[in-house]
Amino acid sequence: MTPSFCALSDVQAACQDATVTQELLKEGFHRDLLVKVELGAVGEEAQGCAVAARIHLPPGIYVDPDELASLQQHNLTKAVLIPEVVDVEAPEYLATDLLVLLYLEPDPRCSRCFRAALPVHGRYHRPAEESEEALVILKSPEVLVCCCDDRLSAECRKPAEVEAPCSGGNVSPCQWYSITHKPASEELILQIPVGLRQHSSFVCAVTLLATVLCSSLILAAVCRYGHFSPVTCLE
């Protein structure tokens, strides 16, 4: 029994040689999520296959479908949103989770490496009691491989329920497989600035004052430079 156990352990170790890392670029509410995958030993079998990352986005972060469509038209990125319709104006407490299938491109500096960047945006959160930052946790993405010639070892894969085509030239339906991997880190934390509840009265007062002042200036400019009679302005 020992040799069989050792052989199984060797297979599992070889399958888990793949690694995935994710990194947030830029600052503020508008960021780029960079995903990098190194397939390791599995990479020899995945040559010519499509590689993607299935990313779960919590309600505190979203992808703009219009921005993504524009990037895809210029071949800057390729991804599938689930659901396709996203309310970009909704705050975090009214939003829902998103799933993104991000197609990865081969890294010319590494034969077994793939990478892609996805523009993401932070949502507005409720005012907090003490902390001026809300934390949005991004779990490590799932690595998927789509090979139309079924070349991957059965020990290193399991079928994945993905309704999306392969990104290669073959337009026929292909089966996506989830690849066992080890994440460089289990999660990535995005810090989003939020307001404090004790400032609510001050913010409301300033907003009301600014609204009244601007409205008065606009009305005065219309009465002064517009084609109205003084009687109309007084009314």
Rank of each mutant, 00 (worst) to 15 (best):
D150T: 10
A220F: 11
V35G: 03
C6T: 11
V194F: 01
P183T: 02
C113Y: 09
P165M: 06
I82R: 12
C166P: 02
A205L: 14
R151G: 09
E67T: 09
A116V: 11
A220L: 07
E187I: 01
Y225I: 05
A13K: 07
G28H: 04
G43K: 00
D64Q: 06
A79H: 07
P91N: 09
A205I: 10
L219D: 10
P65Q: 05
V85T: 12
C156M: 07
A53K: 11
L76E: 14
P183Y: 00
A128M: 08
Q175W: 06
V63K: 03
G43T: 02
L68W: 08
L33T: 02
E45Y: 00
K139P: 03
V222I: 11
L98K: 15
V120E: 01
D66E: 14
S200G: 00
R197P: 00
H30M: 02
P108G: 12
A116D: 13
G226W: 03
L190N: 01
P59Q: 11
T21D: 07
L99H: 09
F29T: 06
R112H: 09
D10M: 14
V80S: 08
C223Q: 03
E27A: 07
V11R: 07
D17N: 11
G168A: 01
C156A: 15
V194G: 01
C15H: 03
L217A: 08
P91E: 11
L219S: 08
P65R: 08
L25P: 00
L68E: 12
R224L: 06
L217F: 04
A69T: 12
C214I: 06
T19P: 01
L217E: 07
F29H: 13
V37F: 00
C110L: 05
D66V: 08
S111V: 09
T2I: 14
M1T: 10
G169N: 09
Y124I: 14
L94A: 13
E92M: 03
A18L: 04
I218Y: 14
S216M: 05
P183L: 01
R151D: 10
S200Q: 14
L68N: 05
Q12D: 11
E186K: 13
L144R: 03
D17L: 00
L25S: 02
L152I: 09
R157H: 03
K78Q: 15
D66P: 00
Y62F: 15
K36I: 06
S4A: 15
V194C: 02
A154H: 09
L138N: 07
L81S: 11
A160F: 00
F202E: 14
L209W: 09
L217Q: 08
E133H: 03
